[in-house]
Amino acid sequence: MKLTVASSPHIRGNFRTNRIMADVMLALTPALAVGVVRFGMDALILTLVTMATAVAAEWLYSKLTKTRNTTVDGSALVTGMLLAMTLPHTCPLWLAALGSVFAILFVKCLCGGLGQNIFNPALAARAAMMVLYPVGLTRYMGVDGVTAATPLHHMVMPALPEESVLDMFLGNCPGSIGEISALALLVGGAYLLWRKVISVRIPAAYLGSVAVLTLVFAKTDAPIDWMLYSLFSGGVMLGAIFMATDYATSPATPMGQIVYGIGCGALTVFFRYFGLFPEGVTYAILLMNALVWFIDRLTPIRRFGTVKGGDNQ
């Protein structure tokens, strides 16, 4: 019998990378389901295409660079799924596939792979697609199957959208596949909180700052309605719950996560109010991504045993 002499600890918990990835995909399922019900099978096909190309791109990268095949950790599947959630179902499949490859190869693998990338791969890809081929990302469909303006287009005017707040909450509005139903996204978020995959800090700080800023700086004379529409329209929910909480591209310290969440929310509102496009979530999160290490450094945790006054004599 050969005894192993290795370092403590000798036991480990069951919190594993692929379990986390599976949980994230499961948590996105309600939002995807709403998208499929709302927009039809095109939405599902688009999602499957981005997921498949993401995995294929990562596999290809490992073959070309003769490094370990990392597709088993499930993170490429998550990236592909997240990217699809940000796209309208009318997005050409070739463009979606190209975006997925870009997310994996350029944003993730070339930055060092899982946990090393600076920018959220799905959002960076979306931003690149927006620049390269905006037409592919801006055709949204109304209930009747014809091209329609999203609630955000109304809000730019500024005016309250035609849909009721309840419709917005449930997802009866034009928009990208995974962003329309706040309810479905909140259900997914609650699941991730319950599974301890994410903490409440980033989503709460993000949504909280959006709520406060849109309430205080409402563009219509119904500030509460304006705030609710702001929260339920566009990608705020998807961004706050699934994008800003991406481990690799968000701070690791509790205080840093709050600062980061507030920054994402404030920039989202800023870009929506003053930006070129109606939506600002993508650029807000990407900009905050760049500041993550900086935020972690500037928000140190109080060292154990250095409490001033209080309990500590």
Binding site: G115, Y247, P251, A252, T253, P254
Partner: peptide, 9 residues
């Protein structure tokens, strides 16, 4: 692989 999940913190 460090995911930067921050659980350790």
């Amino acid at each position: 692989v460090c995911l930067r999940c921050g659980k350790c913190v």
